[in-house]
Amino acid sequence: MDYWMAFLVGGAICGAAQWLMDRANISQIHMLVGLVSIGALLGALGVYDQLVEVAGAGALLPMSGFGYLLAKGIASHEAGQGWMNMGANMFQYIGLELSFVITLSFVAALICKPRG
């Protein structure tokens, strides 16, 4: 059941984003920024936590999950630790996701012929 919920929620997020891009003529970069911003906002309000409990990776893998993890890293920052520690807390949560994306991009560039 967990796999189905992850599939349905992640697919709903991505499907809604694709539908908006098709119908409202929104560019890909605007949708990317919108998803990250919505994820960060919902994460700061505590709403995205409930979605992650229900869907797990289905809510964390789209770009809205990236914004949620950024907000979670900032929220875990304790007062008096300084700005550098806030940045370290952000990357503590998103480090695995960033390293996966960089590795996957490198492998895709080796397999496919990049343009430009």
Rank of each mutant, 00 (worst) to 15 (best):
N85W: 09
A79T: 09
L32T: 10
D22H: 11
W83V: 14
F100S: 02
Q92P: 09
Q18D: 07
A79C: 07
L70N: 08
M63S: 11
L96A: 13
I26L: 14
L35T: 04
G34S: 12
D22Y: 12
K72G: 10
G82H: 12
A44R: 02
M5Y: 14
V101M: 15
I38R: 00
G67T: 03
Q92I: 06
V9F: 14
L8W: 13
G82V: 10
L51A: 11
C14Y: 05
A88L: 14
S64N: 05
N89M: 06
Q28Y: 13
K72S: 06
A55D: 00
S64D: 00
S76R: 05
E53Y: 07
H77E: 04
N85D: 11
I38C: 04
E97R: 10
G56D: 10
R23N: 13
I94T: 10
I94Q: 09
M90C: 14
F100A: 13
L69N: 02
L51N: 03
A6C: 08
Q18V: 05
N89L: 09
Q28I: 13
I38A: 07
A79V: 07
A44C: 06
G58R: 07
L42G: 09
A59C: 07
N25E: 03
L20A: 06
D49C: 03
A79P: 10
G65P: 03
N85P: 06
C14N: 07
P62K: 00
S37C: 02
V36M: 14
L96Y: 12
G82I: 09
G46N: 07
V36N: 04
L8I: 12
Q50Y: 13
V9I: 15
G73R: 00
I74H: 01
G58L: 08
M5F: 15
A17L: 02
V54I: 11
L32R: 01
S64W: 05
L20G: 04
N89E: 08
F7G: 13
L41M: 15
M5T: 15
Q81M: 06
D22G: 12
L51I: 11
G43L: 03
A12V: 06
E78M: 02
G67Q: 00
G10P: 05
C14I: 10
F7T: 08
A16R: 05
M86D: 10
D49Q: 13
G43E: 00
W19S: 00
A55P: 04
A12W: 03
N85F: 08
N89H: 10
Q18L: 04
F7E: 08
M84F: 15
M84H: 12
M86N: 07
A12P: 04
I94D: 01
G11N: 04
G15A: 00
L35K: 06
G80L: 09
S27G: 14
I94S: 09
L98I: 15
G95D: 10
L32Y: 08
G80E: 05
A88C: 12
I26G: 10
L35R: 00
I29E: 11
Q28K: 11
A88N: 14
F66V: 01
M86W: 11
L98W: 06
A16W: 05
Q81D: 11
M63F: 13
G58M: 14
Q28N: 12
Q92E: 14
M21A: 01
L45C: 07
I29Q: 13
L96S: 13
